[in-house]
Design a protein around this nucleic acid. Structure first.
Lengths: 152, 152
DNA sequence: TGGATATATATGGTATATCATGGAAAAACA
DNA sequence: TGTTTTTCCATGATATACCATATATATCCA
């Protein structure tokens, strides 16, 4: 799978249309669904973005919890029920529904932030603060990248 | 994977273009993405450079954290959000974005420093100081190379 | 060994294609 | 038929591909 890297700031027009960065589109080129899946972040006023194929991965992870358990039920409800799949138009744009623009705290600009297998969409004004907070967290908790354990 | 060795100093032209040393390009020849990934070093005023496959590896390792967890979120943000993937042009060059030139403290020259699986890009003027500092550290703390623990 | 020729590399400049974006036409919906 | 949504087209800015040259390195032959 192609990775989502870098930060790109694009304009949201009056109809809610916004260009998905071309490098992101390139990462989606092998997807059967040509578009993205978005839902509100639980931790931030921002949107989480995934390729459709990765939603399968999320679903598999939720199987870690017992079926019908409180966790499974609540997580599934907050992620799957609230997510929307947005197809790319002929020019590489998606239309953000008004509800998502609101939930993401967006105005007339969208900052697409690559995070590897996923990405986020932020209001550019609040993104910088989050970035420095992230770096601070990594330093404070001395987070490191886990050694590869094989597996999948 | 081919190793990055030695130090090469190349010119940065007015458009930010710089030749990737041919030996580095040779190390990249088996990569599916013909280019490099760069991001600002957290420790120095310099740029970290990786092949795309290595970023893929980092992303896979981050999957060991819970999805949407604080750790996963902060680490991904601090690494992937600020990294850029630069394709090689037909003549073996990449264009450095102005932001990266600034962050790396570069002017009109780039020193490519091979460091094994990765490399760094320095302003030649500040690189010498860093090199002797590194040697001093190794001697003072009597650092040695750990034994191989297996893995890939 | 020496010289000439070929090959690869780094670097500079120019032309072309792509991208983001705004707007209009067409289609779908109620 | 009015309204919304989707598709199509135009354009300026930007980035990418293309071509040219010089310098260094390697190869070949006398």
């Amino acid at each position: 799978m192609g990775l989502f890297l870098s930060t790109y700031i694009n304009k949201i027009d009056a109809k809610g249309r916004v260009s998905v960065p071309s490098t992101f589109r390139a990462s989606l080129s092998n997807e059967s669904f040509q578009g993205i899946v978005l839902f509100k972040s639980h931790a931030h006023q921002a949107l989480e973005g995934f390729p459709m194929s990765y939603m399968q991965n999320i679903s598999d992870r939720l199987d870690h919890f017992d079926l019908l358990s409180e966790e499974q039920d609540s997580l599934a409800m907050s992620i799957f029920a609230e997510s929307v799949q947005l197809p790319l138009d002929g020019d590489g744009r998606v239309v953000l529904p008004a509800a998502l623009i609101e939930m993401g705290g967006l105005k007339d600009q969208a900052a697409f932030v690559g995070l590897g297998h996923k990405f986020q969409i932020w209001n550019p004004a609040t993104l910088d603060a989050r970035k420095s907070e992230a770096v601070k967290n990594v330093r404070a908790k001395k987070m490191t990248i886990p050694k590869f354990e094989g597996g999948q």
